[in-house]
Simulated scan of single mutants.
Amino acid sequence: MAKEILSKENIDLNVTLSSKEEAVRYTGEILVNKGYVEASYVDKMLEREELTSTFMGNNVAIPHGTEDAKGLVKETGLSVVTIPDGVDFGDGNIVKVLIGIAGKGDEHLEVLSKIAIVLSEEENIQKILDAGSKEEIIALFDEVN
C-alpha cells in the first residue's frame, strides 16, 4: 500500500528557521526521514533554489527537487512547515509556510494543482499559519478533491 501523501508526521508547526537554506533542508529532511525520498534529494531541492526561487508569494514557498531528481523519489509525498516569524527567501520575500514536494513520475502535477487550489485563497494560508493542530492542516488539503 502506498504511503499517505500528507500525514501528521509530515507536518511541523511553529518552527523557527534562520535562513532559506536551513528552511529548504528542514522541509526536505522530513521527506527523507519519512521515506519519501533518498537523502540526496535535499541537495536537489537546494539546487532548484539556485536555479529559481520556489517562493510563490503570500508568504509561501514550495521547495522541490530539480527535474533530474525524479529518480531519487520513492513515493509521492508532502511536508508542511509553518514558520510564524518567517524566513527571508531573498529579495525581501518572507516565507511563513513551506510545502515540500516529492512527486513520483507525473504525480507531482496533480499534487501541485491541489496545493495551488488551497493556496489560491489567502485565508487558507492564514488558516495554515493559525492551525492549532496538524489535523486542521490535513483537513484543509482534504477539502480539495
Rank of each mutant, 00 (worst) to 15 (best):
M1A: 12
E4T: 07
I5N: 04
I5R: 05
S7I: 10
K8D: 11
K8C: 10
E9G: 12
E9N: 11
N10D: 15
N10W: 01
I11C: 02
D12H: 02
V15Q: 04
L17T: 07
S18L: 13
S18N: 15
S19L: 10
S19P: 12
K20N: 13
Y26G: 04
E29G: 04
E29T: 11
E29N: 15
I30S: 01
V32I: 12
V32K: 12
N33W: 09
K34T: 14
K34Q: 15
G35A: 07
G35L: 10
V37C: 00
V37S: 03
A39Q: 11
V42D: 13
V42I: 14
D43M: 10
M45I: 09
M45Q: 03
M45R: 05
L46P: 03
L46T: 10
L46I: 15
R48Y: 05
E49C: 14
E50V: 13
S53W: 13
T54Y: 04
T54A: 08
T54S: 12
M56S: 06
G57R: 08
N58M: 12
N59R: 09
P63E: 12
P63Y: 02
K70P: 00
K70T: 04
G71I: 06
L72D: 03
L72T: 02
L72R: 07
L72A: 00
V73F: 08
V73Y: 10
V73R: 09
K74W: 08
E75Y: 13
E75Q: 12
T76P: 04
L78M: 14
S79C: 11
V80Q: 00
V80Y: 00
V81E: 01
T82W: 05
T82M: 07
I83A: 04
I83T: 02
P84E: 13
D85W: 05
V87H: 01
G90Y: 13
G90P: 14
G90H: 13
D91I: 11
G92A: 12
I94T: 14
V95M: 01
K96Q: 14
I99E: 00
I101V: 15
A102P: 02
A102V: 06
G105L: 07
E107W: 00
E107T: 06
L109N: 08
L109M: 14
L109W: 06
L109Q: 05
E110R: 14
E110A: 14
V111E: 01
S113F: 09
K114M: 09
I115R: 02
A116C: 08
A116W: 08
V118L: 03
L119Y: 11
N124T: 05
I125K: 01
I125R: 06
A131W: 07
A131G: 03
S133F: 10
I137N: 05
I137G: 03
I137M: 08
I138S: 03
I138N: 06
A139L: 05
L140R: 05
F141C: 07
D142Y: 08
D142I: 05
V144I: 15
